[in-house]
């Protein structure tokens, strides 16, 4: 469990930094809307990763705390 999390944390941070960098670089180059797209796609990718972890967390909580009706 712990090994995976460390990788994912670094991946999220890396993608975040990459988006920020790309955004500024592309704006310098003048392609503003392309930069917006890149930022959006990267953000959605991170959101997907975090959402999958949250869903597994809630599933585990349901199992442990006997939430089933």
């Amino acid at each position: 469990m712990m090994g995976i999390d460390v990788d994912v944390i670094f991946k999220i941070a890396g993608v975040g930094m990459a988006i920020a960098l790309l955004h500024t670089v592309l704006e310098q180059m003048g392609k503003k809307e392309f930069a917006q797209w890149i930022t959006l796609i990267g953000f959605i990718y991170i959101l997907f990763m975090v959402a999958s972890v949250i869903s597994s967390l809630f599933q585990k909580i349901k199992d442990v705390f006997l939430f089933q009706r």
Binding site: V8, I9, I12, A13, L57
Partner: peptide, 12 residues
């Protein structure tokens, strides 16, 4: 993204 990272670490 920083906020998403905190959420992720909390869950992990």
């Amino acid at each position: 993204v920083a906020f998403l990272l905190t959420v992720f670490v909390g869950c992990a």
